[in-house]
């Protein structure tokens, strides 16, 4: 049965892909959920992180596994600075506009300094595939999925059991009540924005290992990320995770059975259908 094999292959690839999407989108989801800011620059920051890792590897020979952590930390700092001096001065739709302009700035600065050529973070021992029962699993995707799963798990633990994580969730539910309970909401916003960017940066590097990237790939990524956040439901990390897997699988199946070129449209179709049928997403609060 060739068809079944192909389907199974598409499912496996899709789930692995979805895992990386989940980590990449978790940052956007967190910022959107807690601060009600749709960060239009999230994907561009993820690309920036991929570039940081790439240059660390190319110029200084730093292993991507180290570079990943370094660029995530760097993005945390960038996020805190950007929030403190720019984003915190505006609200709502203006924040979205500001971040969109920032995305444009970053994207064009990257094109200006590093050109629009496609690059790829190379990890030699990950370029092979392993075969299990007729299904080939590229090692880079498997490791990427593993990293994403661990990252997502740590994030869930952090939000659920640590003091800071609980404060973030309290702020998400009701900022006024949270501040009455002695939570410094401004500080929580600062941390959340930094953390959100760090998460996307982390995942951006993983994407940079699996796929080729250039500054304009951010346009494609942000479309996928927004679709996942809306489909999964605002303010629900679990929703983000499930939505990522579903979109990953649909993308992969469309890529296998129709054509790879239509995969990016899957995200847009999901976004519009969700807004049409159930705007609050599969696990979100009511709008």
């Amino acid at each position: 049965m060739v068809v079944e094999g192909a389907l199974l292959q598409a499912l496996v690839t899709g789930v692995l892909l979805g895992g990386v999407y989940a980590l990449m989108t978790s940052g956007l989801s967190l910022i959107f959920g807690v601060m009600d800011i749709a960060n239009a620059a999230q994907a561009t920051f993820a690309v920036l992180a991929a570039y940081l890792t790439y240059w660390l590897q190319t110029i200084y020979g730093v292993s991507p596994f180290v570079g990943m952590v370094v660029s995530a930390l760097a993005l945390f700092v960038v996020g805190v600075v950007v929030y403190k001096f720019m984003v915190s001065r505006v609200a709502g739709l203006m924040a979205f506009t500001l971040l969109y302009m920032m995305a444009m700035f970053l994207e064009n600065t990257m094109i200006f300094t590093w050109t629009n050529l496609y690059r790829n973070i190379r990890v030699e021992f990950l370029t092979t595939s392993i075969g299990v029962g007729g299904i080939y699993v590229p090692l880079d995707r498997l490791v990427g999925f593993a990293i994403a799963a661990v990252g997502f798990g740590l994030l869930s633990y952090f939000l659920k059991y640590t003091y800071l994580g609980k404060a973030i969730r309290a702020t998400m539910q009701n900022p006024v009540a949270a501040s009455l309970m002695g939570i410094n909401v401004k500080f929580i916003y600062l941390i959340t924005f930094g953390l959100g960017l760090a998460l996307s940066g982390f995942a951006g590097t993983v994407m940079g290992v699996i796929y080729s990237f250039n500054p304009t790939i951010a346009d494609e990524w942000i479309g996928i990320m927004f679709a996942i956040v809306v489909f999964g439901g605002l303010g629900s990390l679990m929703g983000t995770f499930i939505a990522s897997l579903i979109i990953g699988v649909i993308t992969s199946i469309v890529g296998t059975y129709v054509s790879m070129v239509w995969s990016p449209l899957v995200a847009f179709a999901v976004l519009i259908l969700t807004l049409w049928i159930k705007p609050s997403g599969i696990m979100g609060r009511k709008l």
């Binding site: 009600d36 749709a38 239009a40 739709l93 506009t97 927004f226 847009f268 976004l271 519009i272």
Partner: peptide, 9 residues
């Protein structure tokens, strides 16, 4: 915000 997201995509 949803309108902004949808039109951007």
């Amino acid at each position: 915000a949803y309108f902004a997201i949808a039109t951007l995509s």
